[in-house]
């Protein structure tokens, strides 16, 4: 930090003279260790029920605009009854805040599914990290979903630090036809989520790894606008609602040590997202011997974070088929590991 301040002060003093800037070599740069800063969101209440944002230029097959109206956004304390009773909420706390840090790769840790903390970022690189409140193992760990042990008890946010969150989308898909999607999260928490970025010298590009954790006591998707035809009574609204109970997702992209997440934009403006094969070739393009490949694969499968998506119960309407609903029960994708992924966008 002191080194950074010194560099900044020097730049200020010499600005008028346009003195030459000296680049730090990699060894010097790797010694830069910012402590970063943390923050908590204290007394947050967002109520955009009177605001409408319209997204244009997403077209239909004929090239006609399909406006999407975004409305009824809210964020507040739990128990809001889908935003009807909003109160402020504190998100994060001083000993487990949101953080933006610049740290060496070997100092960062990621929680594995079996509760072990492991290093996933390469050593001797400076990593910029944006991080939600951390997860905790052992004493102090909170149930990530109250009353549902399968989601783990390693969240740092306490029950009062969870949020209710909602938003509504109106898709004007055709003349006289508007599809509605109302989303309402209850007791949402995202502890342990992060985005880490660093420069990969051998590839000559910015790379990273990301983890998005979502834990919710419930997520409801209602397909009608409250107060409109067939959507007035509680019974009518329930019949048009999909309910996900005790739902969580741990979405993991990238394992910095051997499979960083690469993002690029091609010359024609399309984005490219890639998770390279971690074992076949070194970053400089040379082939690896079998023993080395096996060792990297073994480390990759043991320590690379995996993606899990679990819905303890999914039901439509009342959940009873005889009354027009359906109970889809338990649904899960568990232990997803990506050996290779390349996504390239293109115009439709």
């Amino acid at each position: 930090m002191r080194a950074l301040t010194a560099v900044a002060s020097l730049m200020l003093l010499t600005g008028a003279a346009q003195a030459e800037l000296q680049a730090l070599d990699d060894q010097e740069l790797s010694a830069v260790q910012g402590a970063g800063f943390g923050f908590v969101l204290d007394g947050v209440l967002l109520d955009a029920s009177g605001a409408v944002i319209t997204i244009n230029d997403i077209n239909n097959a004929s090239g006609q605009n399909v406006p999407i109206s975004v409305k009824e956004f809210y964020l507040g304390a739990t128990g809001s009854n889908k935003g009807a009773n909003l109160n402020p909420v504190n998100i994060g706390r001083l000993d487990h805040p949101f953080e933006i840090t610049l740290a060496k790769g070997e100092t960062l840790r990621t929680l594995r599914d079996d509760g072990q903390w492991v290093q996933t970022t390469p050593s001797n690189v400076s990593v910029l990290e944006f991080k939600f409140p951390e997860r905790l193992t052992g004493a102090g760990g909170q149930a990530c979903i109250s009353g549902y042990a399968a989601a783990g008890s390693n969240c740092s946010s306490r029950a009062s630090e969870r949020v209710d969150l909602g938003i509504r989308f109106d898709f004007q898909v055709a003349a006289g036809r508007t599809d509605i999607i109302n989303l309402d999260f209850s007791e949402l928490v995202m502890d342990g989520s992060y985005l880490r970025l660093w420069g990969d010298e051998s590839r000559g590009q910015l790379v990273g790894e990301a983890r998005v954790n979502l834990f919710a006591k419930s997520l409801q998707l209602m397909s009608c606008a409250a107060g409109t035809t067939n959507c007035t009574t509680a019974q009518e609204q329930t019949a048009r609602t999909l309910t996900l109970s005790n739902a969580y997702a741990n979405i993991s992209l990238g394992y910095g040590k051997s499979q960083p997440l690469l993002f690029d934009v091609s010359s024609n403006g399309q984005f490219v997202l890639e998770l390279p094969n971690p074992v076949t070739r070194a970053a400089n393009g040379s082939a690896r011997p079998v023993a080395e490949r096996n060792a990297i694969a073994s480390d990759f499968y043991a320590n690379a974070p995996r993606t899990n998506i679990v819905i303890d119960n999914l039901k439509a309407g009342t959940g009873s088929f005889s009354t027009g609903g359906y109970n889809f029960g338990y649904n899960a994708i568990q232990g997803l590991s990506i050996n290779y992924l390349k996504v390239t966008s293109r115009d439709l």
Binding site: F321, G329, L341
Partner: peptide
């Protein structure tokens, strides 16, 4: 519709949809 070309090789330990008991359906 998403205008994307995806190439992937992935493994999932368990893919499970619709675990429920319902004598009607």
């Amino acid at each position: 519709n998403f205008g994307m070309n995806v190439e992937t090789q992935l493994n999932i330990k368990k893919l499970q949809l619709g675990q429920y008991n319902d004598s009607v359906t």
